[in-house]
Amino acid sequence: MLDDGTGGDGATPSRAPFDGAAADARARSRELRLQLSATRARLSRLRRAGLDQRGRPDTAVDVFKQVQEQLLAAREQIVHLETALTSNRRIGIAIGIVMARNQLTDEAAFELLREQSQLRNQKLRELAEEVIYTGML
C-alpha cells in the first residue's frame, strides 16, 4: 500500500517541517527589522550629536561608519531572508503538486524534486516554479 503522506488517518498531509521553517524565517526577519530600527535610531542620535560621550568627534565618526555598515548588513540579510521565505513557500507548493500527481509522501516528493534539480543542473526554486506553472516534473 502506498503511503499517502497523511499520517494514515486520511487527513491532510503534515506541513510542520515547512511551516516551522517559514515561521523561523518570519521570526528572524522580525528580529532583524527591530534591530534595524534600533540601529537607525542610534545612527540618527549620533548624527545629531556629532560627538561621542566624551566629546571626541573622531570616535563619533568611527562609530557612525560602523553603525552604517551594520545597517547595510542588516538590510541585506533581511532581503535574503525574505527571498528564502518566498522560495520556501513556492517549493512547498511544488512538493504538494508532485505529491498529488505521483501519490508520494512529502519527503519522497521533495527528494524527487531535489534529484531532478541536480540532474537538470537547475536551481530548486526554478524547478519548483516550472512545476507550479505546468503541473509536470
Rank of each mutant, 00 (worst) to 15 (best):
M1Q: 15
M1Y: 15
L2I: 15
D3M: 08
G5P: 02
G8M: 03
G8D: 03
D9P: 00
G10Q: 05
A11R: 12
A11C: 08
T12N: 10
T12Y: 08
T12G: 09
P13A: 05
P13F: 08
P17C: 04
P17W: 01
F18S: 07
D19V: 07
G20V: 01
A21L: 14
A21I: 10
A22M: 12
A25E: 04
R28T: 07
R28C: 00
S29V: 09
S29T: 13
L32N: 04
R33N: 05
Q35C: 07
L36G: 09
L36H: 12
L36Q: 10
S37Q: 04
S37E: 03
A38V: 08
A41Q: 12
A41M: 11
R42G: 14
R42S: 14
R42L: 14
L43H: 12
S44N: 13
S44D: 14
R45W: 06
R45P: 00
R48P: 00
G50E: 12
G50V: 11
G50D: 12
L51E: 06
Q53H: 09
Q53Y: 04
G55H: 08
G55W: 03
G55T: 06
P57T: 09
P57Q: 11
D58Y: 03
D58F: 04
D58H: 07
D58I: 09
A60F: 06
V61W: 00
D62E: 09
D62T: 03
K65H: 13
Q66E: 09
Q68V: 03
E69C: 03
Q70D: 15
Q70C: 06
L72G: 09
A73E: 14
A74G: 02
Q77V: 00
V79F: 08
H80Y: 00
H80I: 04
L81E: 02
T83S: 14
A84W: 10
L85N: 02
T86L: 14
S87D: 13
S87Q: 05
R89H: 13
R89Y: 11
R90N: 14
I91C: 01
G92Q: 10
G92N: 08
I93T: 11
I93A: 06
A94T: 10
I95K: 01
G96R: 02
V98D: 02
V98C: 03
R101N: 12
N102Q: 14
T105L: 02
E107G: 07
E107D: 14
A108F: 00
A108M: 09
A109R: 04
L113D: 05
L113Q: 06
R114I: 00
E115W: 04
Q116S: 14
S117A: 15
S117R: 05
S117D: 04
S117Y: 03
L119C: 04
L119Q: 13
N121F: 03
Q122E: 15
L124H: 01
L124K: 01
R125G: 00
L127S: 10
A128N: 05
T134N: 11
M136P: 00
M136Y: 13
M136R: 15
